[in-house]
Design a binder for these strands. Structure first.
Length: 876
RNA sequence: GGGAGCAUAGCUCAGCUGGUUCAGAGCAUCUGCCUUACAAGCAGAGGGUCACAGGUUCGAACCCUGUUGCUCCCACCA
């Protein structure tokens, strides 16, 4: 039977994922063990797996799997977010294709379609995560619009309302004319855009004079309520108290005075349009100006505009400009760069719009949430985000939580015929309260109208760490008591405010506790050119294609290889290739060991190699653990990678590998299998599939049933023999040097060489004879007391090594080589001596540093002596 | 406009409270090898005035100041 040279992951991936599922390895229920919990940032139901998800969920899975293998009760809760705007937009588009308009549907009918859509497409992204190997407890899968979770949303709304933290008011909000809803400040993305600055003439009433204002939005002139100038602006004192005509529609508006206007910006005259600009609104409030809203919800002009009614705002802009031009009302047009807000969800240009919305007060909730982070109760990784977080929390603004949509939790406000409203969970409760309020017991539910709006999606996801464990329905239930607070949250810095900050607030407000201990903020996945990977740019590879090509293990390794926390990840497919090469290396190490035959009669000649690797492994375990503690996952992986590839494959296996077709002794064999098993364990969190596949191979005892790698326990810390580690370093150097001689003399690797060592360090190289002979391909190894003339020589620490060759050594060249080395050592020694002779150094440096310097000095002096002897020998 | 961060080999990044380890890793590169585990491999090698300019220090990639370039976050200048 022969085993393929390359490992093909596909079959194993499906087999083992199903096996894990069938045997409930992902399942977590409270027990005596210590819990380790992660709640997955719920991806949007509309989402398709992208590289950001891949990175995020790979990290979470590595953490979860490692915790599981450390004996913790690991629970990873998956789920999806209903994403009201995005989903509603998708459903509207889907209906449009069917020839159905949202307007023609009742709310209930629309929601039926939406749920149908969700059932059909909403699970796709979670299924994709399974391909990656995500070991979530799928039985705990939640959706932010599950009945329980929606109940929690309504309950918290009522709770906060009762506290006086939720209120209703007319405010200037960010209006998304495409989604036809308000969005929160955080959902507005500002981008610099090239615009035109139009200079428009406003004629003064009763005069042929005019003033000029500069605006980027000429289509809003019909909504102007005043022109504002700075009272100190001497250019315009003659305009005080005057009125001007709005061009084209000739409506009279006053000239008002306010120091808000910058004299040296533009023309120093500002058109005040309270309905369409936040500052203008405030200015309007101050000066009692009327609010003239000339826009419909979809961004077209309404009848109040008087002209261009029904035209889209951007079409109207061009037309107004043309009309002004024609009427001679346009002085000039300049190119101008300015910030424009775009909707995060629909990418439409945000329109400031005055409307009645629900708000949630933030100030009091922000305070404790900030304190948790500043006090270190919650750690942000990397720490640099603490500053950003603080800045936001200290300047937090009230949260506009209502959305003019149907997909989501409907606001539990019930309006009475007289316009007053009741906040209640059900219509019956509302009726009861309404009857009391109005003293009218004949009031019926027919007369109550529920608020049409739904709450912001984040108003449900901020409850996620609590609501997934039913912490609202049943605050003391076994799950929430056991799993909450969760341990790690892995998410993108982009949603630090949207989500992370608000979860902390909710955790404090509703549980009196932090929701998680550590927040690992991943970077943004970018392409090689540094551009953010996005669907619209088309620069993002399809993760499923990558898995198909490199295997899930390969992609996981690829994602992790260069992704330090908080730093952006320049994604390069070659990393996945490296991941694939890596598991193939493991596969081939397996093939090697698998091919060995054991002879029980043989003695073990490899004890020293075994002792060395054991120490090396234990050393690496500490290093890896340390990296995990610091959330340096890519470094933990790299340490593992080097341990497996370099130490285990390139050194250890080569040291003990029997000659072709020769059997191996029982002891070495068993120890090697044990090492390999440990390697499978530490690799498992990174590469779950191949490790599980090998774990069950006959080589490792043909395990079956519940004995799986996924639940194997990581090896305990073992002893580290630093002496052997140091000695082997010398041995390895000698091997490399001999190979180097062979290489530089262009000798065949097959040609065995003689090696003589004069061991000044006291290392007994004969103990390493097997290793040296095999790896350096020696015909003979001897220890000598004297220098060997006429041989190629090199120094490893203070040990002199001689390789006699069938050629005469050129004494001049050799002398030059030694001279060069001597020069370096002398210089080095000089600097060390300078330090040791420096009073200030001796006074200020730490003792261990001084000690290290003294050791360096001794080493360098010893080497110098040896070189001098060599030079002397050559001279004779 | 305010704030934060980054700048180290061709690329992606380490470099912990300043101490020579003539600055490290992985990948890529170059040379030689199809050596019976692996060419998705093996062996070996080369490669950096640590962005620039000053300063502090016995000593600076690391601390301070300035300059340049880049990134991100926040902000209502028409």
């Amino acid at each position: 039977m022969s085993i393929a040279k390359t490992y093909l992951p596909k079959e194993a991936e499906e087999k083992w994922y199903n096996y894990w599922l069938e045997n409930n390895f992902f399942r977590s229920v409270p027990d005596d063990r210590e819990p380790y919990t992660i709640v997955m940032p719920p991806p949007n139901v509309t989402g398709v797996l992208h590289m950001g998800h891949m990175l995020n969920n790979t990290i979470q899975d590595v953490l979860i799997r490692r915790a599981r293998m450390k004996g913790k009760n690991a629970c990873w809760v998956p789920g999806t977010d209903h994403a009201s705007i995005a989903t509603e937009a998708k459903v509207v588009a889907m209906l449009k294709e069917k020839g159905i308009s949202k307007k023609d549907l009742s709310r209930a009918e629309f929601l039926d379609y939406a749920w149908e859509w969700k059932e059909k497409y909403g699970g796709i992204i979670l299924d994709q995560l399974k391909k990656l190997g995500a070991s979530c407890d799928w039985e705990r899968t939640r959706f932010t619009m599950d009945d329980d979770l929606s109940d929690a949303v309504i309950d918290t709304f009522i709770h906060l309302y009762k506290k006086g933290w939720i209120y209703r008011g007319i405010r200037m909000v960010n209006w998304d004319p495409q989604g036809k809803t308000a969005v929160s400040d955080e959902e507005v993305i500002r981008k610099e855009v090239n615009q035109k600055l139009y200079y428009i003439k406003y004629f003064i009433v009763g005069s042929s004079e005019f003033l000029t204002i500069a605006t980027t939005r000429p289509e809003t002139i019909m909504a102007d309520a005043a022109i504002c100038i700075n009272p100190n602006d001497e250019r315009y004192t003659h305009l005080h108290g005057k009125k001007v005509f709005i061009p084209l529609i000739n409506r009279e508006i006053p000239v008002i005075l306010d120091e808000y206007v910058e004299m040296d910006f533009g023309t120093g005259c500002l058109k005040v349009t309270p309905a369409h600009d936040l500052n203008d609104y405030e200015l309007g409030q101050k000066h009692n100006l009327p609010v003239i809203d000339i826009l419909n919800d979809d961004g077209t002009l309404n009848t109040k505009a008087q002209i261009l009614v029904g035209e889209d705002r951007f079409a109207a802009r061009k037309k107004i400009a043309a009309m002004l031009e024609e009427a001679g009302g346009l002085e000039k047009v300049e190119e101008y760069k300015s910030q424009v807000g775009f909707s995060e969800r629909t990418n439409a240009v945000i329109e400031p719009k005055l409307s009645m919305q629900w708000f949630c007060k933030m100030e009091e909730m922000a305070k404790p949430a900030l304190d948790y982070v500043l006090a270190g109760d919650i750690k942000l990784i990397p720490e640099k985000f603490i500053n950003t977080y603080r800045h936001w929390m200290e300047n937090v603004k009230d949260w506009c939580i209502s959305r003019q949509l149907w997909w989501g939790q409907q606001i539990p406000a019930w309006y009475l015929p007289d316009g007053r409203y009741i906040i209640a969970k059900t219509i019956d409760e509302a009726l009861e309260q309404a009857q009391q309020l109005t003293q009218n017991s004949r009031l019926t539910t027919q007369e109550l109208v529920q608020d049409e709006d739904v709450v912001d999606t984040w108003f449900s996801s901020w409850l996620w760490p609590i609501s997934v464990f039913d912490g609202f329905k049943d605050p003391e239930n076994a799950d929430i008591s056991y799993y909450y607070p969760t341990n790690d949250l892995v998410t993108a810095p982009e949603i630090l405010f949207f989500w992370v900050a608000r979860m902390i607030m909710a955790g404090h407000e509703f549980k009196g506790k932090i929701p998680f201990e550590n927040v690992y903020l991943t970077g943004i996945v970018r392409d090689k050119l540094g551009r953010k990977m996005s669907k619209s740019l088309g620069n993002s590879p399809d993760p499923l294609d990558l898995i198909e090509k490199y295997g899930a293990d390969g992609v996981r390794v690829g994602m992790l290889l260069s992704s330090p926390a908080g730093n952006d990840l320049m994604f390069d497919e070659s990393h996945c290739e490296q991941g694939r090469n890596f598991y193939n290396k493991v596969w081939n190490a397996f093939r090697l060991v698998k091919g060995w035959e054991v002879d029980d009669k043989l003695d073990n000649p490899n004890q020293i190699a075994i002792d060395w690797f054991e120490s090396r492994f234990n050393q690496a375990m500490i290093e890896i653990e340390d990296n995990f503690v610091q959330y340096r996952l890519s470094e933990a992986l790299m340490a593992t990678y080097k341990l497996v590839w370099d130490d285990f494959c390139a050194w250890y296996l080569e040291m003990i590998k029997p000659v072709y077709l020769q059997p191996i002794d029982r002891d070495t064999y068993n120890k090697t299998i044990a090492f390999f098993e440990n390697i499978l364990k530490i690799l498992h969190p990174f590469m779950p599939f191949i490790t599980e596949e090998l774990w069950h191979d006959e080589l490792f005892g043909g395990r079956n049933g519940l004995d799986c790698c996924i639940v194997a326990q990581l090896p305990a810390n073992g002893e580290i023999n630093s002496r052997i580690l140091a000695d082997v370093e010398n041995v390895k150097q000698i091997i490399t040097q001999v190979r180097n001689i062979r290489n530089s003399k262009q000798l065949s690797p097959k040609e065995a060489l003689q090696l003589s060592i004069k061991s000044n360090s006291g290392i007994d190289y004969l103990a390493y004879k097997t290793i040296l002979t095999r790896l350096a391909n020696l015909s003979e190894l001897t220890l000598v007391d004297n220098k060997l003339a006429g041989a190629s020589s090199f120094l490893v620490s203070t040990d002199e090594c001689y390789v006699p060759l069938n050629e005469t050594i050129d004494p001049i060249a050799e002398s030059e080589r030694l001279q060069k080395e001597k020069e370096y050592l002398t210089g080095f020694l000089k600097s060390v001596n300078a330090k040791l002779g420096n009073e200030r150094f001796m006074a200020n440096a730490k003792p261990e540093i001084i000690e290290a310097e003294q050791k360096k000095k001794a080493d360098a002096e010893a080497k110098l002596r040896i070189i001098d002897e060599g030079l002397l020998g050559l001279a004779n």
